[in-house]
């Protein structure tokens, strides 16, 4: 089904960080993701677009085995981390290990009702990191990466719930970055935010790709076009088309992709 565009095949020298191989996912007897195969390139932003219910969030949540928290779910196929070619969906890999390597930012900002500092430090705490100086350095680095350090450096002990929605989301990004993840998953990170906070986060995501691989699910086509390097269009659980973002948006190969990006449905 996948109509890979030529740019993706050669990929302009980009190195693959992970590869999804014939991945299907079902809740009970309902298959939500159907045999999807696509590459994830290192230090690039890959966007997943498609209408509501097309399975893009479900696909994203396979990457950190979030579905393992719920009953009656089943993976089929592989997500291989490269270059070691390790299938993170394999049952002999602990989902906790996967989540320590691949972190996630959710649709709605979900900071813990703890201090700003503790929110960012939490990933280190669960790993048993005790050295105060290291934790402090990491928190500062992560908050700086998330573009939040200057706003909060004087009140790290204040409750995270006192921050604005946009700040909370950047805090969640800092929390996801603090543990040096190999891949960061962003699940519609700006859908609950105002345009100014959205612009802020988009800018931030683009700077992050210098050293992190990013997979972002978005409802907003313009956002995908603005920030991503590669885009996958999903429809009814299938990956219809995958390619370099400019190519996919200007010369879609599949009629459904074209209908979607020109606004004929969705």
């Amino acid at each position: 089904m996948v109509n890979t565009t030529q740019e993706a095949a050669t990929a302009g020298g980009d190195e693959m960080r992970a590869e999804i191989r014939r991945l299907s996912f079902s809740y009970g007897d309902k298959t939500v993701v159907k045999s999807v195969s696509m590459p994830i390139y290192k230090d690039r932003i890959t966007a997943l677009i498609g209408p509501s219910g097309c399975g893009k969030t479900t696909l994203l949540r396979c990457f950190n085995r979030m579905h393992d928290l719920y009953n009656d779910t089943e993976y089929e196929g592989e997500i291989a981390l490269l270059p070691e070619n390790r299938n993170i969906l394999s049952s002999d890999i602990d989902p906790i290990e996967v989540r320590m390597r691949i972190s996630m930012v959710f649709q709605k900002p979900n900071p813990f009702p703890k201090s700003i500092f503790e929110n960012v430090a939490y990933g280190l705490r669960v790993r048993g990191v005790k050295r105060r100086s290291f934790i402090e350095e990491t928190v500062e680095r992560a908050l700086a990466q998330a573009g939040l350090w200057n706003e909060v450096k004087d009140r790290l002990g204040a409750s995270a719930l006192a921050l604005s929605g946009g700040q909370q989301q950047r805090l969640c990004i800092a929390r996801a970055l603090a543990t040096d993840p190999e891949i960061v998953l962003l699940d519609e990170p700006t859908s609950a935010l105002d345009p100014i906070s959205t612009a802020h986060i988009e800018e931030l995501v683009v700077t992050l790709k210098q050293n992190v691989t990013i997979v972002i699910v978005t409802h907003n086509l313009h956002q995908a076009a603005r920030i991503s390097d590669y885009t996958g269009f999903m429809y009814l659980g299938e990956l219809i088309e995958f390619g370099r973002t400019p190519g996919l948006f200007t010369k879609p190969k599949d009629a459904r992709t074209e209908s979607y990006i020109t606004g004929r449905f969705g």
């Binding site: 906790i96 989540r99 996630m104 979900n110 009702p113 669960v126 929390r175």
Partner: peptide, 11 residues
């Protein structure tokens, strides 16, 4: 969402 946030960092 709070549970998921904690699980997502590897708790």
């Amino acid at each position: 969402t709070i549970r998921e946030a904690a699980y997502a960092v590897g708790a």
